[in-house]
């Protein structure tokens, strides 16, 4: 198989399959989780302003009082690399081009130099977060094999994207192929691993917020 065919497979059949598995997984897992049913709370609720599931969805973006000092790496690292991933994915020119191709929507891109800075910051932050996971006994204890594999799976698309744009280390074709295949792996594992938190985090926050809001505690 030549590079050309390899790349063609990855950007054709490979990506189609990955997207298909991703779509299937999202629907399957969402249904699997959210059709289990729940008992409604029938205790007389206490209504106070500023407490509801919706408030909690927003409020959990913020670090609770004092917590940021207890574990700054997790909080700041978490903010930075999540924001970095969002910016790199949604605001870089090639990705906007792709989104326009797919759904017809587009928006202005950040200049490539900005994207470069964000990418490097994201990569460094992810490394810091990983080192923290390995070094801190608590996190190491809670981490399984999957946590490390998923770190790699999240890290590689960013790294390969950067290398592709700058033509570093390997021929462009191979880099482009690696970038796409790393994204495909990410798409495939997404619904079946903790990456799925991107979907479940919102209802989880809502459930928690709602439970507490009924008691009158703005959490």
């Amino acid at each position: 198989m030549s590079e050309f065919q390899w790349l063609s497979w990855i950007r054709g059949v490979g990506l189609q399959s990955a997207v298909a598995i991703f779509c299937m997984g999202i629907v399957w897992r969402t249904m699997e989780i959210y059709t289990l049913g729940r008992k409604l709370d029938i205790a007389e609720p206490r209504r106070i302003s500023g407490a509801s599931g919706w408030h909690t969805i927003y409020r959990r973006f913020l670090a609770p009082l004092g917590m940021i000092h207890l574990d700054p790496v997790t909080y700041i690292g978490g903010y930075v690399f999540h924001l970095g991933l969002l910016i790199v994915f949604f605001l870089s020119e090639p990705h906007i081009h792709l989104i326009r191709e797919l759904i017809g929507l587009s928006w202005p891109a950040l200049p490539p130099s900005m994207i470069d800075i964000v990418t490097i910051v994201t990569l460094i932050t992810m490394i810091v977060v990983l080192v923290d996971r390995v070094r801190k006994p608590l996190k190491r204890f809670l981490s399984g094999f999957g946590d490390y594999v998923l770190w790699v799976i999240t890290f590689l698309p960013v790294l390969s994207g950067y290398l592709t744009v700058h033509h570093l280390l390997l021929p462009y074709t191979i880099l482009l192929a690696l970038h796409m295949i790393s994204v495909e792996v990410l798409l495939i594992v997404f619904p079946f691993t903790k990456l799925f938190h991107a979907v479940t985090v919102w209802p989880s926050r809502w459930f928690n917020g709602n439970t507490n809001a009924r008691k009158g505690v703005p959490v």
């Binding site: 790349l7 063609s8 950007r11 054709g12 990506l15 189609q16 399959s17 997207v19 298909a20 598995i21 991703f22 779509c23 299937m24 997984g25 999202i26 629907v27 399957w28 897992r29 969402t30 249904m31 699997e32 059709t35 289990l36 090639p94 081009h97 792709l98 191709e101 797919l102 482009l176 796409m180």
Partner: peptide, 29 residues
């Protein structure tokens, strides 16, 4: 080259397959 070829070619079928798996999980659960 950087754009994929019809990446969502099978998406509708995949969504339906997902709904079927999810549906059967719903029933069995």
């Amino acid at each position: 080259l950087s754009l994929p070829e019809k990446p969502i070619g099978h998406a509708v079928n995949a969504l339906m397959a997902g709904a079927m798996v999810g549906g059967s999980m719903f029933m069995t659960n």
